[in-house]
């Protein structure tokens, strides 16, 4: 184990963390404000990636693909909100879980029909396809650096939006008491649709960023969705700051665990035992973390203030 490898895996973990944050931010906002458990958030991630793959093919440029796919994914999100999800706000969580589960089945099949059963590949332009030398002798893929930059940029923009603007004030007010801001004359319907669209665009962006690394395929949203849920539960549902911190923790622990747990374990037990135990344990690590956090803090690490 060299320091270069450690740094590389650290960056990989960080990159997974910011991807998770892009998903979790929308999820936590939608839950915090509309009180809606949206399992179909992962479908927006998938749809975003597919749209981006097609647009990249058509325009011949990944940059244009992303720029055009963002509003398209947002539009899909807005349509879903206005047709299916709006009626669910007043329902209990069980109804929401089931109905959005139905949406997942629908979207998975839809992508299979539209884009075929095989996945798609998003080709990267030459300037993103190489490596950068981050330290003397240590190379890291340019595109992964870009993901980290985009993720941090979005986090900063969201911070400004939520803390410094009037819309952000409404979002925060909605998170602590949505009935009250409705009573104060804010058009909740529009606010909800806008927030959902924003969340959809962020989920789609995460899909577009992940697309060139993992193949774009049906069902790609489901595995990462569960991780995103782990993130918002650890972070405290409704808190963007919590989602950011928890996303980085989860991304780092997951990646580092997979890479280095066998080395750590072999210090404590025989090499062959470590080799057997490490993959199992590292796959379970984030869930153990979540169970531990919830055991001691059932509301997550950063529950929003004044939530009822």
């Amino acid at each position: 184990m060299t320091w270069a490898l450690l740094l590389e895996q650290f960056l990989n973990g960080f990159q997974l963390g910011v991807l998770l944050f892009l998903l979790a931010a929308g999820l936590t906002l939608v839950f915090g404000i509309m009180d809606l458990v949206n399992l179909a958030h992962g479908s927006l991630y998938m749809v975003g990636a597919f749209i981006c793959a097609t647009l990249t093919e058509l325009t011949g440029s990944f940059g244009w693909g992303v720029l055009l796919a963002l509003p398209a994914t947002m539009a899909v999100g807005v349509i879903v909100e206005m047709t299916a999800l709006r009626t669910l706000y007043a329902r209990d969580h069980l109804d929401q879980v089931l109905a959005t589960f139905g949406l997942i089945l629908f979207f998975n099949e839809l992508t299979r029909i539209v884009w075929g059963p095989e996945g798609m590949v998003i080709p990267l332009p030459a300037w993103l396809d190489g490596n950068v030398e981050i330290l003397p002798g240590v190379h890291y893929p340019t595109f992964r650096m870009l993901i980290i930059a985009v993720g941090l940029g979005v986090a900063a923009a969201l911070y400004v939006l939520v803390v410094k603007t009037r819309t952000g004030m409404l979002i925060r007010a909605g998170a602590s008491n949505r009935a009250m801001i409705g009573a104060l004359g804010v058009n909740i319907k529009t606010l909800f649709t806008a927030i959902f669209g924003l969340g959809a665009a962020l989920a789609g962006l995460a899909g577009m960023m992940a697309g060139p690394i993992i193949e774009v395929s049906t069902g790609m949203g489901e595995e990462i969705l569960i991780l995103a849920f782990v993130v918002i539960v650890i972070g405290g549902i409704g808190s963007i700051r919590g989602a950011f911190i928890a996303a980085l923790i989860v991304g780092l622990i997951d990646t580092m665990g997979r890479s280095f747990l066998d080395v750590l374990l072999s210090a404590a037990m025989s090499a062959s035992a470590a080799e057997t135990a490490a993959p199992a344990l590292s796959a379970m690590l984030v869930y153990i973390l979540m169970a531990t956090v919830l055991f001691f803090r059932p509301q997550g690490l950063f529950p929003p203030h004044g939530r009822q």
Binding site: R91, L98, A99, G102, F106
Partner: peptide, 14 residues
Amino acid sequence: WQIIFGPFLILVVL
């Protein structure tokens, strides 16, 4: 079939 089954599920819930 899931393209029918998914919306069916939603309709049952609603």
